[in-house]
């Protein structure tokens, strides 16, 4: 009996050490962001700040506030629009399959697996042609279009779990094509919208490649602002660390409180659920 207890405490001790190791970067970001610039030096990097100083956060916020604002507009608008596209597409590919719909679905999915470098040059040209290069609108458009595959996939998997007998009884009650969608399917879709909403919001919030290639300074998203803040050599490290935490907080809140749905989105990325 004593043996088992020793084993158990060893096991939990090991798990806790592992968990602490995973938390190291967050610890480092927090202590550094709260230090005075004068107090930051490499040999004392691990130490707690002697005096807690929120100056880093204040400076990071004033430097990044347009970027945060841009990212909020970008993530909310692109997420909402692409969620509705995904819902109606998923309704077709799950509940109203027709000849050839499977192959079309597979061809749509291909779009989420490409390395985006392959479409970057024509995308840049097209946005330039329509006068959208450099603007937030162009970036929103890109996120909506290239989000179609994943949102369609998540909603299709979600609707596959809704039994067809509900559809049948709806039809017997005289509901038509759109009546079934708006009256029956859409009200049942709230969990699907939560999964898609969380997934798209975090992906769009975190995205960098299009941000840096397709926007000008005034419409940069937060990731681009942070990369430029941290890339500059002159600033002291409490500012980029505070900026990194600011960019992390929205997605961390979503992840911690709605983790279950986040994981659902994550697992659906592996095509089969």
């Amino acid at each position: 009996m004593r043996d088992i207890n020793v084993k158990k405490s060893f096991f939990y001790g090991f798990l806790i050490v592992l968990a602490l190791a995973y938390l190291v970067p967050v610890y480092m970001a927090i202590v550094t962001s709260l230090k005075n610039p004068a107090e930051i030096s490499l040999p004392t990097a691990w130490a707690f700040p002697e005096h807690i100083n929120f100056g880093g956060f204040a400076q990071a916020f004033s430097l990044l506030k347009t970027d945060v604002f841009n990212s909020l507009i970008l993530a909310f608008s692109a997420t909402i629009i692409s969620a509705f596209i995904g819902s109606i597409n998923g309704y077709v590919f799950s509940k109203n399959r027709f000849k050839g719909s499977e192959i079309i679905f597979t061809l749509l999915l291909f779009g989420m697996f490409i390395p985006y470098q392959i479409i970057l040059i024509p995308l840049f040209q097209l946005l330039n042609f329509f006068g959208l290069y450099g603007s937030l609108t162009g970036l929103i458009l890109a996120h909506i279009v290239y989000g179609i595959p994943i949102v369609t996939l998540i909603f299709r998997n979600f609707y596959d779990q809704i039994s067809n007998s509900i559809m049948e009884s709806g039809r017997l009650d005289g509901a038509g094509y759109f009546g079934l969608y708006f009256g029956l399917i859409l009200p049942l879709s709230i969990p699907g919208f939560v999964v898609v909403g969380i997934w798209q919001f975090t992906q769009i919030w975190n995205e960098f490649l299009w941000g840096i290639t397709l926007t000008r300074t005034e419409s940069n998203p937060i990731t681009v602002g942070l990369a430029q803040l941290a890339g500059g050599q002159a600033v002291s490290w409490n500012i980029p660390m505070a900026g990194a935490l600011m960019a992390a907080v929205p997605v961390l809140i979503i992840y911690i409180f709605l983790g279950k749905y986040f994981i659902k989105g994550l697992l659906s990325g592996s095509v089969k659920e």
Binding site: P25, L42, P43, T202, A248
Partner: peptide, 26 residues
Amino acid sequence: VFLYPMSLSFIVTGTIWRWLLAPSGG
């Protein structure tokens, strides 16, 4: 705890790791 890094942007984690891997610190 094991999964939270996945929710973050590479730019966020990259910024922090750059500081962690500084030659004479971290």
